[in-house]
Amino acid sequence: MSLDAATVRRIASLARIGVGEDEIEGLRTQLNSILGWIEQLNEVDVTGIAPLTGAAQMALKMRDDVVTDGGDPDGVLANAPERAGDFFVVPKVVE
């Protein structure tokens, strides 16, 4: 698998990472070498083996339906670049 420059631009755009035109070729080479490394996994025969989603072979732990958290708007908003009352404030995002 080999990425072209357009795909690199698209990945950057989807990830909201600003990438200059002069950086595209370097990133393309680096991403391709990572993908090439990962692709070695395709050499392993996994016929008849169930997919693994994690290293821990156990079921998901569950908790009871009890309210144990909340009531701390100041803590939640502590890192907000801007706030108004107890709202986060962001640049307008409506069409």
Partner: peptide, 19 residues
């Protein structure tokens, strides 16, 4: 409570108090 946290789900609470 919410799907993955212990914050409340009730409708109409003051902003960011159930987070």
């Amino acid at each position: 409570a919410k799907l993955f946290s212990g914050a409340a789900t009730a409708f109409g609470a003051a902003p960011n108090t159930q987070v």
